[in-house]
Amino acid sequence: MKEKRNAADIVWTLFLLIWTVSILFPLIWVFYESLKTNREFFQDVWKLPQVMNWINYEKAWQGYGIGQAMINTVYYVGFSTLIGTFLTAINAYILTRLEFKGRKLLWAAIMLSLFLPGINALVPQYILMRDLNLTNSLTGLIVLDSLGESAFFLMMLSGFMLSLPKELEESGYMDGASIFQVFFRIILPLSTAGIVTVAIFKILGLYNNFLSPFIYLSDPVKYTIGVAMYQASIMMQYKADWVTLFAGLMITLLPLVFMYVLLQRSIMEGATLGAVKG
């Protein structure tokens, strides 16, 4: 059905374009400013750089400690995702496909977390971490963020695992396989798609996590990328080194852009799936 184009249509199209520009332009702007010298930037914020000053990226990587922060972030995100995703997978299986006493009670206790806002527990959690000697340590952060139950991810995966036919496990047992073999050889491979989605979301969430690294890490050498950028922006108030900060922000965004371009389909689907259940 073809409709006539009228004034209202033009307004709507304009609205779409304005929103698109509001998202893309600031990012593009920061990118090309990051290639200027500070002098060029102070003179005119619109002009394109005359020479590409990739040196700003080197300065940000070393001077602002973005390089070290990136290594810390990879360590923190990598291990937390690996351990966390594995535990989520095994727990989703245990809590949804195995029969044992107390299963429902455990499930209810985990669902309770949907009611806890979390913010009121920040102080006691900090004291606990301090008493356990886990503060100011990336490994401590990994412990905090990978051991635990996430109602959201469990529901995401359990839906997946419930759709697998029961006969698969039964035939495994018939052939004399142990429960370990059934889980690792049959259930895990068949749930790969769901597990990958969980892992993607863990990576995004951990990479963007700011509050707990900010609370728990006090040594600048241990900062993750978010904390390092925040501290750099505070330092900037005294140094007026804008272009390097721009370069730092671009470095921070790069992994996210890369992941988003590659995986936008599953990210968009998974995110809205979470909204239904979370």
Binding site: N91, I94, L106, G118, P124, L144, L147, G148, E149
Partner: peptide, 28 residues
């Protein structure tokens, strides 16, 4: 075997949940 599997799977995750989430909430 099933019991061992359940314990190995649950203890780190559920233990962590009790320790780092439920307990601080009560403590607050």
């Amino acid at each position: 075997q099933k019991l061992v599997f359940i314990l190995i799977g649950l203890i780190p995750a559920f233990g962590g949940y009790v320790l780092f989430t439920l307990y601080p909430n009560l403590l607050s």
